[in-house]
Write a protein that binds this DNA or RNA. Structure first.
Length: 431
RNA sequence: GGAGAGGUGGCAGAGUGGUCGAAUGUACCUGACUCGAAAUCAGGCGUAGGUGUAUGCCUACCGUGGGUUCGAAUCCCACCCUCUCCGCCA
């Protein structure tokens, strides 16, 4: 959510910044909603003030035992208009709120301008793609060849876009998550958290998934009450429950920054991605991810973003996986982000880099929706900044290991840092 | 699932229809006293919004949403959450 004061005072500037990311702000609609709101609100408050004053008179008069019939008759005439105005005001405020809540964040000034993925800017390449002097297989062939990856059974149990791991590959998956958690808690200063996987609508609104992206989520109906249904939502990322820990909270200044890490499954409906990445584990309805979240002082958030990005990169470095970092352009950034770096890992079978982590600064965009604040040096509540990034997507990391560490005979070498998590196993062979 | 208690300001905790946005304590800020601090004393101290050049004035907010009333923290209804006991249970 953008600051409504900013829109009131500098509408044109906000509109032009949003235009950079391909979003057209309906200036006229905003002006019209605002004008309506102002007029109705002023009139409503006038009437309320009059009603309150008169009611007080009645109270005072009654206390003295005077007759109040005349004043009561007078105030009674206010009732209808006031009720109407109050309803109107509520309606226009709802409209205004709905209007605001689908406006994306404004990009940071340093974000490169562009329309799509093609305009993202490569920051650096780290590591060298392995030279494989044999016919390179993709992770599906490798995994199935090892007898540890089974899409058919997953499809029988659930359907398309699910996978099933067995034996050493299932263990490798677990090893990866453990390794990442250990790195972030022991080396990078994050507090490990275990969080709910089903969250309420307020939490989804807080981080920006709702109201605009409901079709990307799995909704779990909970109660059908008189007021309508109450839903749970399956988390599409641990960002949602972890960031919402500070929703409606005022965090003491000295506790900042809060740094949390969580390993959770993520559930995405992948509506609108029909036909994309249908083969393999790249795009699934369910996948595991280790997520880093920082709740941070506004002046420190860009520093924090670089740091968080570095924490994610270390994982790839330790695993010996080649990757590159790209800075997303204005047109490719997510709804809530002010700046985003993607980390892309090298996948030999695709002969390209594929996204394995996304690290963003949301500035106060999420915090404003969540009313997540801290008490500043003057003792006044002020909005926090929020950051998050994958550190890393576990399934895609598994894919990268299978492909980068594959051998001519179809076996896969276990990266050294994972061996202690694998009971000392150095190589995964077909059973 | 059954029975009961409760949700009020940063925290604790009064308040059962009329100057209650809310006593009191505590925390915090300012001043006095002090070489300085503690203690003491005096004053200040919620959030959001509207409006005005301005001291300011006004509105809303006592879990959430409805309702009754001239007037609701206070009465009524529904829901959410927390706690205690019983039952069931990974």
């Amino acid at each position: 959510m953008l600051d409504i004061q900013l829109l009131r005072h500098d509408l044109a500037a906000v509109a032009s910044r949003l235009a950079l990311r391909g979003f057209t702000l309906d200036i006229e609609k905003f002006a019209q909603l605002e004008a309506g709101r102002k007029q109705i609100q002023t009139r409503t408050q006038e009437l309320q003030a009059r009603r309150n004053a008169t009611s007080k008179q009645i109270g005072a008069a009654k206390a003295k035992g005077e007759d109040t019939a005349a004043i009561m008759a007078e105030v009674a005439t206010l009732g209808d208009e006031l009720k109407q105005l109050e309803n109107k005001l509520e309606q226009v405020q709802h409209e205004l709120n709905a209007f605001l809540s689908v406006i994306p964040n404004t990009p940071h000034a340093s974000v490169p301008h562009g329309k799509s993925e093609a305009d993202n800017v490569e920051m650096r390449k780290v590591g060298t793609p392995p030279k494989l002097d044999f016919e390179v297989k993709d992770h599906v062939s490798i995994g199935e060849g090892l007898g540890g990856l089974d899409f058919e059974t997953a499809a029988k149990i659930s359907g398309a876009r699910f996978s099933l791991l067995k034996g050493p590959l299932a263990r490798l998956h677990r090893a990866l998550a453990q390794f990442m958690l250990d790195m972030h808690t022991e080396q990078h200063g994050y507090t490990e958290t275990y969080v709910p996987y089903l969250v309420n609508a307020d939490s989804m609104r807080g981080t920006g998934q709702l109201p605009k992206f409901e079709e990307d989520l799995f909704r779990v109906p909970r109660v059908m009450g008189e007021e309508g249904e109450i839903n749970f939502y399956l988390i599409p990322t641990a960002e949602v429950p972890v960031t919402n820990m500070v929703r409606d909270e005022i965090v003491p200044l000295e506790k900042l920054p809060l740094k949390f890490v969580a390993h959770t499954p993520c559930f995405r409906s992948e509506a609108g991605s029909y036909g994309r990445d249908t083969r393999g584990m790249i795009r699934q309805h369910q996948f595991d991810k280790v997520e880093l979240v920082q709740i941070i002082h506004p002046e420190k958030s860009y520093e924090g973003l670089e740091e968080l990005l570095g924490h994610a990169e270390v994982i790839l470095q330790k695993l010996g996986l080649p990757y590159r970092v790209v800075k997303l352009c204005t047109g490719d950034m997510g709804f809530s982000a002010a700046m985003t770096y993607d980390i892309e890992v090298w996948l030999p079978a695709q002969n390209t880099y594929r996204e394995i982590s996304s690290c963003s600064n949301f500035e106060a965009f999420q915090a404003r929706r969540m009313q997540a604040r801290f008490r500043n040096a003057q003792g006044k509540p002020e909005l926090l900044h929020t950051l998050n990034g994958s550190g890393l997507a576990v399934g895609r990391t598994l894919v990268a290991i299978l492909e980068n560490y594959q051998q001519a005979d179809g076996s896969v070498v276990v990266p050294e840092v994972l061996r202690s998590y694998m009971g000392g196993m150095e190589i995964i062979k077909a059973s």
